[in-house]
Design a protein around this nucleic acid. Structure first.
Lengths: 158, 158
DNA sequence: TCTCTAGTCTTGACTCATTCAAGATAACCT
DNA sequence: AGGTTATCTTGAATGAGTCAAGACTAGAGA
């Protein structure tokens, strides 16, 4: 019980069999925070040679259920995964390029916020997404008029 | 300039042409808060007789761009729309049945929260989603063991 | 170490929300 | 009223994600 962070141990602790696809997918999520399924799939394939699309979906679901990865899905984006779990941090999303940054949660433990009315719900998490424009897109935006049309939502009007 | 809240006026103010599909879709969003596109489509068709799927998507996008409706999309759900705009309220989502409730924002104006680090982003909104289990599902959950399997995420373990 | 078996992975087809494209229609300006 | 152009209809396409059936293999017991 020396290496608590050993990926194989983590899998076993979660009651999951240790397989190369699972180890590589987990490693890929660590290497590529906020990556989409396809990117994780590609990264794992680089190591494994071959890995089915379906296996990646299955593994990611198993890892997410086991809380070894966290699934996030900002509006308008497909599912993304990150390996930073347990600290209930939040996210900063660029409306223009879709870039994502982690933001530490001041409170840390979930739920970090209390709803003004709980409507009788048993609340266990407050998920916060900060929307804005990243420095890179801000620079482009002030340089040229409209570099590329923003995806769905428009910029905040002055 | 008597009825500022007149739907036709609102459309015109936003630079949008006033059409029956737009009026009916807007009314449908008012009548069915948090409805998905298909439900809005069905509701509007009840009044109009016929309305294409594509028109509903176009109209909803136009209305959302004009800030006459707000598009929300909790993880794992398809896009939903609501007519309550401008007050930057938040949402309470049931992990079991997917039910959604509005939660007033104590601050009101956007962004209601400040990120601990902004990474240079120009932040204009803090979107908060409270996740939990609604009273109805809580009751079912304590009555029987597992009524239906929760969609993706599992309940908080004891 | 060998064998068995349930849990995993592969393959391939499928669903369904959403988008694209082209032509018909109708709202608004003059 | 007439022309312009945004909007709507129709029909097909995209793409993330899922389902299903069979092959494979990690891990437990002999």
């Amino acid at each position: 019980m020396s290496t608590q962070a050993d990926p194989a141990h983590l899998l076993r602790q979660a009651g999951l069999r240790v397989t190369r696809p699972r180890l590589e997918v987990l490693a890929a999520v660590h290497r590529h925070p906020h990556a989409v399924t396809d990117e994780i799939c590609a990264a794992a394939r680089e190591r494994l040679g071959t890995l089915s699309h379906q296996a990646v979906y299955d593994v990611l679901r198993a890892l997410a259920d086991a809380k070894l990865v966290r699934r996030i899905q900002p509006s308008g984006s497909v599912a993304r995964y990150e390996a930073r779990v347990g600290d209930n941090h939040h996210h900063l999303v660029c409306r223009v390029c879709g870039g994502i940054e982690d933001v530490d949660c001041a409170v840390g433990e979930r739920p970090c916020l209390t709803a003004s009315e709980d409507h009788g719900y048993l609340i266990d998490e407050a998920e916060v997404v900060f929307w804005g424009v990243c420095p890179g897109c801000l620079a482009l935006d002030s340089a040229s008029a409209v570099p590329w049309a923003p995806p769905a939502t428009t910029h905040p009007s002055p």
